[in-house]
Nucleic acid binder design. Sequence first.
DNA 1: TCTGTATTGTCGCATATACAACACATTGAA
DNA 2: TTCAATGTGTTGTATATGCGACAATACAGA
Lengths: 190, 190
Amino acid sequence: MNQPKTDPRIQRTRKLIMDSFMELSSKKEFKDITIKDIAAEAMINRATFYYHFEDIYDLLEKVLSEVLLVNLDCSNYQNNELNEEVIVSIFVAITNFQKSLSNRCHRGYEETIARNIREQLEIIFYKLLLKQHNSEEDEGLKITAVILSWGIYGASVEWKRNSKKITPEEFITLAIPHLIPEIDFVASNE
Amino acid sequence: MNQPKTDPRIQRTRKLIMDSFMELSSKKEFKDITIKDIAAEAMINRATFYYHFEDIYDLLEKVLSEVLLVNLDCSNYQNNELNEEVIVSIFVAITNFQKSLSNRCHRGYEETIARNIREQLEIIFYKLLLKQHNSEEDEGLKITAVILSWGIYGASVEWKRNSKKITPEEFITLAIPHLIPEIDFVASNE
DNA sequence: TCTGTATTGTCGCATATACAACACATTGAA
DNA sequence: TTCAATGTGTTGTATATGCGACAATACAGA
């Protein structure tokens, strides 16, 4: 699965950069964050940033997948099922990420982030679905992953619009009973 | 005073090592702490430790002076006087250090640490006294620094023995009125 | 005594990072 | 427009760190 070991220097520096990006994102808009800012916050050289990431969009992408995957690992990555618990933890991860990223309404920002979140969700859902079906590739599952990614992300937007009156857990749990049949249907072929 | 700049990598690694040492010291005795432990805790290579410190005693020495000097800088390093405020802050720094280092009674441990604390105190007191007298070297001040270092350290031992019934600030402040005349006498020649 | 285990301190080589310099694009003000 | 300032991405070189190996020492137990 994973290479024997990763150079500890790389782990440290990647974490420094990602944490600094999260920190900065909570203070100002995505479009106002420069590589120089990130390097300064992380106390690393600017050139080192480019050693690890192509550009700031590459960083964004990896931060997103990292955040989502970490939350998944924490909950129940063991039994790789696309069940209620997994969906809830993914939804919570998204809302947490958005909260930590920004409290204000960002404009050009949201378009970029939203696309990346959906892309990462799609990857995760597709992986989970494939494992559930012991399959290696499946066009139908791929489309299902697309639908789920848009749906879950849309739900997070809606939750945000509703002024966060209820917790993310409660919010998404309300919808799950109506979704489960479909998921079960998809997952029933294993 | 300080070199133009220090390599950020060195700053990071030194801090990692020192913090790890403090962390480990709060868990087990000094004599049971190995270089390997420190390297593991700091997530650095063991060889890197030797790049920065001669051995574990060198590390101990530098951690001590760091802790004491940092607390001094924070309070009032501007006006380099050996006044009540400085003595209180030094005393608080020592007790804080000892608290963070260990809650149990360590045996072989205390002898080593105690000597180092006194040595560092002596250096600091001597520097302060020299500045106060605009002098570059003075045997009398050196001896005074020795006396003060033993005295202050002894006070911290006594405070610890008294089960810490009062705060370090209160404790040392009780004695200062009786000490000030002597300090004033020493400092009056400027 | 011997054996096995652990820690220390050092070494050579590979790799990650720091730093300065550079060309280029973008922006904003004169 | 022009010019200065700022950000991006790249390159070459010096330095810090990782890693495996090694000898030396100490110590516990058979």
